[in-house]
Amino acid sequence: MPTPSAKSRCPTTPPSPTSTRRRSSRRGRKFEQMQVQDLSKPVVASKADWLMGTTWLGFTPSNGSGYSRQQCQSTIQRQFSGGYVIEYITEAFSEPNPGYETDPVYLAEREQHQGIKGCFLSIHKLRFTSRPLEEIIGNEDYERLQDMWAKEGKRHRWSVAFPIIESYRIEGRPKAKDVLGNTAYQRLFGHPSATLRPLEQQDQIAIANLQITQVPATNSWIGIEDEFPSAERSEVSSLTERLLDRDLQNSQAQEGMTKERWAKVRRRAAWIADRFIQNRIKTNSVHCDVCRFSPNEITDGTGIRPRSLLDVHHKHPLAEGVRYTTVEDFTLLCPTCHRAEHALLKIGRSLLSEQH
């Protein structure tokens, strides 16, 4: 198992109603509780682990060659592409290599496992491309990990690691068998697998109403930086950039960042906001998300673009550059509602949150 300094947990290879949202507070921070079905993408696969992953999920290639690692990465990418991964905690907890049976870290994590085995614990969004595990946890922790768990001298266990860039805690730690039913449970987890376990539609329906709360993902910066080049290469509306600058101008997120990095963060935010707007245009849903004003009728036949009469607004500007933000972090508002939203935010209120 990884040591505490690795800030992660090792994997193993063992055998729709209306959604509701509410807010809770933990240690002074607000977290929005939601349901699995509220996620922007479907949960498409499951990963069986000994303990909950916090910074990465690892997979073991057939050997230590670069080709084998690439093949392993490609397989996992196909399995989770376009969706989230739900993490299941195995019933079994393996034995380490001789000499580590009384290791304090191993004993502590084995004891922790007893309280969560058989449960669904978390849902993750993974970076699309993996990184060598030693780059994530450092060479010292990587070597210790291999000393403890590598078999037959094959020192590449869990070496293909996908950073977790977005993460949700599943409330109540439900037992996977209770959620899925025995037949589906055995199909998914009744056999060893070195890869992910694809979910069928019936599995997705079974987990749809699980309550989840987003938690910080310390590797979100990897996903953010991955998108800087795409944002720089893309054309972004100058109107979008101006509106986002207003939302971000007083953001505390920029504290501790260089001017160059903050400029890249702002550019990425505007790039995502533009994608959000294009999605709304494609789905014919260009209207204010508060008062429902739609400019389509009054602009019909005038040559005026309906989108030009609405503002894009960042719902969580303090998160920009801190967590992995997506199109779900933006909304469309008419100018009046936009002004009202900014005025209310100054006194700790929000038109958007009061709608729920």
Score class of each variant (00 low, 15 high):
Pro229Trp: 05
Leu244Arg: 01
Thr240Leu: 05
Ala231His: 04
Arg246Glu: 15
Ser220Lys: 00
Ser230Tyr: 06
Glu225His: 08
Ile207Gln: 06
Phe228Lys: 00
Phe228Val: 04
Glu235Ala: 08
Thr213Glu: 15
Thr218Arg: 14
Gln214Cys: 08
Ala217Tyr: 00
Asp226Thr: 12
Leu248Tyr: 03
Asp245Gly: 09
Glu241Gly: 01
Leu248Trp: 01
Gln211Ser: 13
Leu239Ser: 12
Trp221Lys: 01
Ser220Val: 04
Glu227Ser: 05
Asn219Pro: 03
Ser238Tyr: 08
Ala208Arg: 10
Glu232Arg: 07
Leu243Cys: 08
Gln214Glu: 08
Ser234Ile: 02
Gln252His: 13
Arg246Ser: 13
Gln249Glu: 14
Val215Asn: 06
Ala231Asp: 05
Leu248Asn: 03
Leu239Lys: 14
Asn209Pro: 03
Asn209Met: 09
Ile207His: 07
Ala217Val: 00
Phe228Asn: 01
Ser220Ile: 03
Phe228Arg: 02
Pro216Glu: 00
Ser230Leu: 11
Gly223Tyr: 03
Glu227Val: 02
Ser237Gln: 10
Leu244Trp: 05
Ser238Arg: 13
Glu241Met: 11
Gly223Thr: 11
Arg242Trp: 02
Val236Cys: 04
Gln252Cys: 10
Asp245Cys: 03
Leu244Met: 12
Ser230Lys: 09
Gln252Met: 13
Asp245Ser: 11
Ser238Gln: 14
Pro216Met: 02
Glu227Met: 09
Ser238Phe: 10
Val215His: 08
Arg246Trp: 10
Trp221Arg: 05
Asp226His: 10
Glu227Tyr: 05
Asn209Lys: 12
Thr240Gln: 09
Ile207Trp: 06
Leu210Gln: 08
Ile212Trp: 10
Ser237Thr: 08
Ser234His: 06
Asp226Ala: 14
Arg233Pro: 00
Ile212Asp: 07
Trp221Met: 00
Asp247Thr: 06
Gln214Met: 09
Leu244Ile: 15
Ala206Met: 10
Leu210Gly: 07
Gln252Gly: 14
Thr218Val: 12
Ile222His: 01
Ile212Thr: 05
Gln214Ser: 11
Pro229Phe: 06
Arg242His: 05
Val236Ala: 00
Asn219Ala: 09
Ala206Asn: 13
Arg242Met: 07
Ile222Ser: 01
Glu227Thr: 06
Ile224Asn: 04
Ala206Cys: 11
Thr218Leu: 14
Val236Phe: 02
Val215Pro: 09
Ile212Asn: 08
Pro229Ser: 04
Leu244Gly: 05
Glu235Thr: 11
Leu239Tyr: 09
Ser237Met: 07
